Computed example of a mutant assay.
Amino acid sequence: MGHGIKALVFDVFGTLVDWRGSIAREGAAWGAARGVAADWAAFADAWRAAYHPSMDRVRRGERPWTILDHLHRETLDRLLAEFGIIGLDEAEKDHWNRVWHRLTPWPDTVPGMLALKPHFTLATLSNGNVALLLNMAKRAGMPFDTILSAELCRHYKPDPEVYRMAYGLLGLQPHEVLMTAAHNSDLVAASQQGLRTAFFPRPAEYGPAQVKDKQAEHAFDFVATDLVDLARQLRAI
């Protein structure tokens, strides 16, 4: 196709799936069925706000390697108390923690991936653990060829080891792999390891108050409006 790209590796949370809306919707339905009132959008925001700080403790060596499911569960236990949600047994807490396995894709995600799949290898490149990403992909119908996770190299993005792992495991050169994300910082880190980069915005990821990542802030290789537009730019459509 002229651009030399053989594989796309995707950030997942926010880029392909709507974590905030998914958690808020499931929380509202769960709360209504049990008579539990809470600001579920705020609950989702607070859960996500702990994402980077909890991983950074692992990245800095302040605690041993810990998968994201376990980090999420530690945050959940704290948030349930903070939001006054009481009386859950261990099975219910585990089910709630696995809401991250049940996130809903954005409307263009699956159509874009289906257009790309005949022409490229498609893989996750996410801080989510393997089981989380696999369960999410199967439930959402996201047609990945393989699951690449921070768990495989025991480093969290933006550690360089994660990006190097991607092209190494795929048997490709860095310039043959296109890191695809809705987050500027992820793409900058990928580009520093030689990967090609593609940005498209998800202006509703953090809700109506979103400020960051509403546009490309660097000279990435591709800038699209969404995943279907990126597929067009890669001449897959």
Score class of each variant (00 low, 15 high):
R60C: 03
D69P: 06
R59S: 15
H72M: 01
H72P: 00
A46D: 15
A49W: 06
R73M: 13
L68P: 02
R73H: 13
L80P: 04
R48W: 05
D69Y: 11
F43P: 01
L68V: 15
D69S: 14
V58C: 10
T66R: 14
L79W: 04
R78E: 08
L71G: 05
R59G: 11
D56Y: 02
D77E: 14
A49S: 11
D56I: 06
L79C: 04
R48T: 03
H70I: 08
R59C: 03
D56W: 08
R73Y: 12
A46K: 14
R60Y: 01
A49N: 08
R48H: 07
R57K: 14
R63T: 14
L68C: 05
E62I: 07
H70F: 07
D56G: 07
L71M: 09
L76P: 00
P64L: 12
M55D: 01
R57H: 11
A49L: 08
R63L: 10
R73T: 08
F43V: 09
L68R: 10
W65H: 06
L79N: 02
L68A: 11
M55W: 05
R78F: 05
D69H: 13
A46E: 15
D69G: 11
R63Q: 15
E74D: 15
E74V: 06
A44D: 02
D45E: 12
Y51P: 01
M55L: 12
P53S: 07
A49Y: 00
H72Q: 13
P64A: 15
W65G: 01
T75M: 09
L79M: 05
E74Y: 08
T75N: 05
L80T: 03
D56N: 12
L76F: 11
P64D: 12
E74L: 14
D56R: 15
W47F: 10
D69I: 02
W47S: 07
R57N: 09
R78K: 09
F43W: 05
P64W: 08
R60V: 03
R78V: 05
R57E: 14
P53H: 01
A50K: 11
L68Q: 14
A46T: 10
L76E: 04
R57F: 09
W65C: 07
Y51C: 02
D69Q: 11
A50E: 14
Y51D: 06
W47R: 09
A50V: 02
A46P: 00
R73I: 02
I67V: 15
L68S: 08
H72F: 04
R48S: 07
R57Q: 12
Y51N: 10
D77L: 14
R57I: 06
M55S: 15
D56C: 03
R78I: 03
R63C: 11
V58N: 06
R60D: 02
A49K: 13
L79V: 05
T75S: 11
E62S: 04
V58L: 09
F43C: 09
H52C: 00
E62L: 14
D45S: 09
R57D: 14
E62G: 10
R73N: 09
D77F: 02
E74T: 09
L79S: 10
L71H: 08
D56V: 02
H52G: 11
E62K: 10
L71T: 01
W65D: 03
H52V: 12
A46G: 08
L79E: 04
D56L: 13
P64Y: 08
L76T: 07
W47P: 03
